[in-house]
Structures are given as C-alpha cells and as structure tokens.
C-alpha cells in the first residue's frame, strides 16, 4: 500500500506529501525497499546490479560511481564486486540489497528483516547508518521478528499479531499497555499476543 501496489479498502497513504495511490511512481522514487527474501539478478555482478539500480533511480554517473564505491568499501565487498551474484553468500546478497535501497538517498526506508544473514560488523554499520539517517529526518519502517533488534533500534514499535495492530508506541508506552514495568519487548509481545504459555509448551516438548 505504501508503494501504491495494493489499493486500500478505505483511507489513503501519504508518502512525503504524495498520495501513494495517485502517483505510485513518484512515491517509489522517495522510497528505499528491502524485501524479506530478495531475489536479485544472479547473472549480473554485484557492481552491475548496483549500476542498474542507480540508473533505475536516475542517478547521474559521477554520483552513482561515488556512492557505489563508498558502500562497497563500507560493506567489505571490494574485490568481489566483479563476481556474478550467483556465487555470493546470503550475507553478501543482503548487503547488495541494502546498498541498492540506500543508493538513491530515499526519504523513506521500508526494511523487512534488514539485518538477517549479515556479519556482526556489517550489521553494526547498518544499525549505525540507520540511526544517523533517522537523525537526518529519514523515516525508517522496519519489520522484524528479532525483538531485541526492534527494542534496541526503534523509537516507536507496532506490535502486530494475526493481521491486527495490538499496540503502538515507544517502550514506555508499550510497558504501560502490557502492565509490565521494566520488562523487555519479548515479554510485552508475549503478554499482548496472549502467547505467554511458553513454559508449558517447552515442558510438553520435553516429555
């Protein structure tokens, strides 16, 4: 819906003052998107893929070259950028996907499990980068099942369960809603979703 691909039953989504439904192409220009399990063009090299994405977003040649080189260096992909993506590990593919989302300096980032498969150094770089981008006014919407990451990185957290929004707010507000002062996001999630019967499940499995 944010990218204008699915029409909402009611209401509308505005992205950087543009109604997604009215002008999806203008919205897509402002958005950097990382899907959960991205399929890249395996027959291209990492460099060719980023060059392709840069052209898709209309970056000029010098700007594109500078950004691609910066990101390749930061993500430690130098030396492998000329290899076909088919030979990349899952982590390397994730890095290429993340770079392609950041490349055109989007105003909104939509990230689905962005840190999956990343090595600790790259994960740290992405986390720090996201914090800096947020400080610069870039909105990041991230979906994750790793609640520690969500708690550590997000200013506002939405808890969704079976297609319903159960809670939305910062950690303090979520703790208040769950009536679990001092608890972490995992406990809050389990309490709000009514799935806190973990101990019984484990004991049943051990029988």
């Amino acid at each position: 819906m944010i990218l204008g691909l699915i029409k909402p039953d009611s209401g509308s989504v505005n992205v950087v003052c543009t109604k997604a439904e009215d002008d999806p192409v203008a919205v897509k220009r402002q958005v950097g998107y990382v899907p959960e399990s991205p399929r890249l063009y395996d027959f291209l090299t990492g460099l060719e893929y980023l060059d392709f994405v840069g052209d898709i977003y209309g970056l000029d040649a010098s700007e594109k070259k500078a950004r691609i080189e910066e990101y390749l260096e930061a993500m430690e992909l130098e030396g492998r950028e000329g290899d076909m993506i088919s030979s990349y590990s899952q982590g390397m593919k994730q890095k290429i996907t993340l770079i392609s989302a950041f490349l055109h300096k989007p105003k909104l980032l939509l990230l689905d499990e962005p840190l999956s498969s990343l090595d600790p150094r790259s994960a740290r770089i992405v986390k720090d980068l996201l914090r800096k981008l947020t400080a610069q006014g870039i909105t990041t919407i991230m979906s994750t099942h790793v609640l520690e990451i969500a708690q550590a990185m997000c200013d506002r957290i939405a808890i969704m369960y079976e297609g319903r929004l159960l809670a939305l707010g910062n950690m303090k507000e979520l703790r208040q809603k769950a009536r679990l002062p001092g608890s972490d996001l995992e406990d809050i999630f389990l309490k709000l979703t009514g799935t806190e019967d973990v101990r019984e499940v484990v004991e049943a499995l051990l029988k």
């Binding site: 090299t45 460099l47 060719e48 060059d51 392709f52 840069g54 052209d55 898709i56 209309g58 040649a61 010098s62 594109k64 070259k65 691609i68 080189e69 492998r80 950028e81 000329g82 290899d83 076909m84 088919s86 030979s87």
Partner: peptide
C-alpha cells in the same frame, strides 16, 4: 563457481542507447 566478469576501476557507461532516445532507466 565465482565467475569474475569485471575487474579494475568502475566507470559508469554513458551509452549508445541514450543517444537513441532511451532514458537511463530504459537503457539500464
């Protein structure tokens, strides 16, 4: 196997397709 297609400095292509009237997106 890792097939290395390109090595050396990266130079973005200013293509022949651009001269035919295709935008950078279309040429890409």
């Amino acid at each position: 196997p890792a097939i290395t297609v390109s090595r050396g400095a990266y130079v973005p292509k200013v293509g022949f397709l651009g001269r035919l009237g295709f935008s950078s997106l279309e040429a890409a």
